[in-house]
Design a protein around this nucleic acid. Structure first.
Lengths: 132, 132
DNA sequence: CACTTTTTTAGAATCATTATAAAGTAGACT
DNA sequence: AGTCTACTTTATAATGATTCTAAAAAAGTG
């Protein structure tokens, strides 16, 4: 199985649950956005059995820490994650409450002119809110 | 009192609590970032009495809806607000867990090349994460 | 297999936020 | 000032996402 190596290399034991979550997250044509709840439902639908919610939380956080998922900075009562870990941005459709990817190439280059002493820029994320 | 008009013009009755919250929020040299909890504490400290937490929530949301406050898009267990309602951005210092303003003039112009049919851009917000 | 460490799990705990509904207040009109 | 109505405030309860707990299960090692 192709995810066993990946997990081992990250120092994560390739357990049944983690491998199944990998399938649901990464065996897809396209990347997608999700909340923990979305993911738990998708797992149940797709694998026909449930994985404990605590495990889903643990796994998503572990994957995020390892860089296999990204959190999307947006204000919502739930946390949104993205399986697209490339350097990119988001539209947020306020009416539909839906996120849409915005590739880096669709945003002109961003220059941050202000510097903060002793700190390095880790990421630059753009959120474009849309209305009708 | 200078906030009475402002509130009335927004269709908000100028109640004692709202006026006091206006003082705490807007009678300052500089703008600032806060969570509801920060604000509730600041009120208690500065006015020497408490305003019900529910009222603080109600008022902050009312002010945000009217455009007197902005929510800052960031992932945290609490919601961050900003009394700086000018078009600007933020640094987020991951180590200190602190927000720092980033004026529009400190960010090169941002061009959003992708268009979404029937939707207008309401805002463009940049979050720059900082590490050591 | 025996042993240690990590992981999973159900359920409880936490904590920010929102809802409720009763009491208080503002504004308008006499 | 008094009356009326609609809006506000308030304490408290309810909600709901997330985290914690600690016991059972599974993985890795020899």
């Amino acid at each position: 199985m192709k995810y066993i190596e990946k997990l081992r290399n990250s120092g994560l034991r390739p357990t049944k649950q983690r491998l199944q979550i990998c399938e649901v997250l990464f065996d897809t044509e396209t990347t997608f956005h999700f909340t923990i709840n979305d993911l738990a439902n998708k797992i149940k639908r797709q694998l026909n059995h449930k994985i404990s919610l605590a495990t889903v939380y643990n796994t998503v956080h572990a994957f995020e820490k390892k860089g296999y998922l990204k959190q999307i900075p947006i204000n919502s009562n739930q946390t949104y994650f993205d399986t697209n870990i490339s350097d990119h941005h988001h539209f947020y459709d306020l009416k539909e409450e839906k996120l849409i990817d915005l590739e880096n190439s669709d945003v002109g280059p961003i220059k941050i002119l202000k510097k903060i002493g002793g700190k390095k820029i880790k990421s630059v994320e753009v959120l474009v809110k849309l209305e009708d």
